[in-house]
Write a protein that binds this DNA or RNA. Structure first.
Lengths: 343, 343
DNA sequence: TAATATTGCTAAATCGTTTTAGCTAAAACA
DNA sequence: TGTTTTAGCTAAAACGATTTAGCAATATTA
C-alpha cells in the first residue's frame, strides 16, 4: 500500500500542460516566465490536491544547491553546543535551510571525515566549530569554493570567516571580578593547544593580573590535555589549593563543571575554601549550591550571525562582514565572593 | 580559484574507460560486474589522486536512497535529547547514515512541517520523538511507506514501531524509594496530555501507592500545561507543600530542573523541607547540592535500537522487533532521604 | 499592411550517478 | 572446426527537477 510519490509530470499530465510550466509555477517563477495567472492557480491547486512534495535530490542535482547547511560541533550533548545548535537551527529554518549535524569529539581525523562527507552530501555551506590542527585543511576546503564560517573558535592568522565571543573581554571580566572581590592568588585552567579563542581568555587573565600588579606564578596557568582530563584536572586543582590558590577562573563550561564534581568529591567548599568563576552558563551554574559566577556568551547573536554570514557566502561568494567578535555578559553569583556569600 | 568537483566521468576519461566501469569500482561492485582486478586498482588509485567525492544528490536521485536519517526531537538543547541525539548520531554513522535534525518544540504544526520537509528531502527514514496529537498524521506517513520509528514516546494503540523506556518500571522505582524512605504524603507532576509514556509514569506512581495502601488525594497528581508551565508549577508546588506534601516525584527532567529553580528561589530546602526524586539524570542532579535521586533511562540502548530498527525497516520494509521497552536504573542520592542526608 | 514585440506555452538538454542490456574477443566445449 | 560460455568492457536509459531556446499566436507599432 505504498503510495507513489507525486512528481511534476503527474501534475502536468493531469492538467495537460508541460512539465516546465508546472515547474515554473511551483518554484514561484511563473510571472517572469509568462504563465497565465489562470493556469498558475490551477497548477497550484492540483499540486495541493495531489500532495506534491518536491524531490530535493533532483533539484539539488540540477541546481547544485541542496538547501542544507552542515553543522559541525565538538559535541552536541554539551549544553553549550546544544544551545548553539538550537539557535542555528531556528535561524537556518527561517532562511529556508535544513541542518545536517555531526560531532567531531575534538578529533582531527573524525572532523575531516565528517566535513568530507557533509561536502559530498552537497551541503550548500558549513558552520563549523573547528578542532585543533584543522586550519590548513579548512583553508583548502574554502579555496575549493565551499562556503565556511567558523563559530565559537577561529584561526586568526587565516582568512576563514568567523563568529566568536570576545575572549579577551570575557576573560578580563571574570578575572577582574575575582580580584575586586579581594582575591589575589588566583589560577586559571585551560585545555592545552593552539585554539586561540581559549588562549585569549588566558591572556586576558594574565593581562588583568599584570595591570593590577599582581604576580603570577607559572603554576597558576594550568594547562591540561584533552583526553582523560578529569584525572589530571583533579590532581592539579588539589595541588593548587594546597599551594594557597584562593580562586579559579575556568575557561570553559566543560572544565568548570568537572571542577565542581571534583570539589564536591573532595569536600572542598565554595566559596568558603575556594572561590570560583567560569566561562559559560550551564544550568548547574544557575541552580547548584552555591550558584556559580560566570560569563555568558551571546549565543543567540553568535548563532544568527553565523547563519547570516554563511548564507551570504553561499549566495554572493563572500560576506560583507566576515569577522565578528561579540561580547557576552558577566553574571555575578555566589561562588566568587567569600565575604558575601548570600549575594 | 574554485576547483571544479571531480566526477566519475573525469576519472573515466583520464583512464580511457567508461563511466559505468568506474561506477562499478567506486561502489565496490566490481567483482560481480567482472571488472579486472588490475583496472579496479587503477580506478581506485586515480579516484584517490583526484580526490573524488561522490555526488550524493545524483546517487539519491537515481537510487531513491539518500543515506540520511531524519531526527526529530522536542528540543535539541534539552540535555536528555542532546544525549539521545549524540548516541543516535554515533550509531547512525556506524551504519553509514548522516543525520538531519530539527526540534519540534512540542508544537504539532511545527512538527508536521518539519517531518514534511525532511521527507521531501528524501530522508531514508525517520527517528521521531512524537508530539501530542501527531498519531494519525504519523500513521498516514507510515502508510505512505516512510520508515518511521518513535523514540522516547509511543502511541500504544497504533502499529507505529517504537523504542521507549519502561515508564511503569521507572515510575515504580522512584515512588517505591520515596515510600521506603518513610514518606507517605507524596505528589507527582506531569505535563497534561495524552502522551502515554509520561502517563505510565504517573500510573506507576498511583499503583505503587495503592499497593502500599497509601491514600492519594486528587491534588497529589499535579497536571500542568506545556506553555508557561513555570508559573503554574511554582504555584502548585507551593500549595502542595502548604498542604503537607512531604515529597515529589517529577516525571521529566524539564519539570525536575524547574522545580529545583523554584525551591531555590523560595528557600525551600531539600531534603529537610521536602524530599525529591525525578526522572532523568541531567548534570545538575549529579552535581547540585543536594544531589538528586533519579531514574536514568538507558539512553545508549534506546538510541542504538532505534537506529537498528529504522535501518531494518528501510532495508526490508519491516523490522523483526518493532516494539522495544527498556528499563533504566535508579540512582539513589541525597534528595530523597530526610533522615540520612549524608548518603 | 507589414514589420516587430509580446504573450503563453513546450521541447529538450542537463545535472552525476546507477544499472540494464548488449557487444566483442577469448576460452571452453563438442 | 564450429558452437557455446565466459570474461571484460561499453552504451544508453533512467531518476525528477530546472532552465534555455524557441515556436505560435496575438498584439502593437510604424
Amino acid at each position: 500500500m505504498v503510495k507513489k510519490k507525486v512528481k511534476l509530470s503527474d501534475i502536468a499530465s493531469k492538467l495537460g500542460v508541460s512539465v516546465s510550466l508546472v515547474s515554473f509555477v511551483m518554484s514561484g517563477k511563473w510571472k517572469e516566465n509568462r504563465v497565465s495567472q489562470e493556469l498558475a492557480k490551477k497548477v497550484q491547486k492540483t499540486a495541493e490536491e495531489l500532495g506534491y512534495q518536491p524531490n530535493t535530490a533532483a533539484r539539488a542535482l540540477r541546481t547544485g544547491k541542496s538547501g542544507v547547511i552542515g553543522l559541525v560541533v565538538a559535541d552536541i550533548s554539551n549544553s553549550f553546543y546544544g544551545k548553539i545548535a538550537r539557535e542555528i537551527e531556528n535561524e537556518a529554518s527561517r532562511h529556508g535551510f535544513q541542518l545536517m549535524f555531526a560531532s567531531s569529539d575534538e578529533k582531527l581525523e573524525k572532523f575531516k571525515k565528517i566535513v568530507d562527507t557533509l561536502i559530498s552530501r552537497q551541503v550548500d555551506g558549513l558552520i563549523i566549530v573547528p578542532v585543533k590542527g584543522s586550519a590548513t585543511y579548512l583553508i583548502r576546503k574554502k579555496e575549493q569554493g565551499i562556503p565556511i564560517v567558523l563559530v565559537d573558535r577561529n584561526f586568526p592568522k587565516t582568512k576563514l570567516p568567523f563568529v566568536v565571543d570576545d575572549g579577551r573581554f570575557g576573560g578580563k571580566q571574570l578575572t577582574k571580578l575575582l580580584i575586586d572581590n579581594g582575591h589575589q592568588k588566583i589560577a586559571t585552567v585551560v585545555f592545552k593547544g593552539e585554539l586561540s579563542n581559549y588562549n585569549e581568555r588566558v591572556e586576558a587573565f594574565i593581562d588583568t593580573l599584570n595591570q593590577e600588579n599582581i604576580k603570577i606564578a607559572s603554576d597558576d596557568i594550568i594547562e591540561i590535555p584533552e583526553r582523560n582530563f578529569q584525572v589530571i584536572l583533579e590532581a592539579k586543582l588539589l595541588i593548587s589549593i594546597k599551594n594557597g590558590v584562593q580562586g579559579f577562573f575556568f575557561t570553559q563550561n566543560k572544565i568548570g563543571i568537572e571542577a565542581l564534581r571534583i570539589f564536591k568529591k573532595n569536600k572542598i567548599k565554595i566559596p568558603e575554601d575556594i572561590v570560583v568563576a567560569s566561562y559559560d552558563n550551564p544550568e548547574i551554574f544557575e541552580l547548584g549550591t552555591p550558584t556559580i559566577t560566570c560569563y555568558q556568551q551571546s549565543i543567540k547573536e553568535i548563532s544568527s550571525h553565523s547563519v547570516k554570514i554563511v548564507k551570504e557566502i553561499i549566495n554572493k561568494g563572500h560576506s560583507s562582514l566576515e569577522k565578528i567578535i561579540l561580547k557576552g555578559r558577566l553574571i555575578e553569583r555566589e561562588s566568587s565572593n567569600k565575604l558575601n556569600s548570600s549575594l
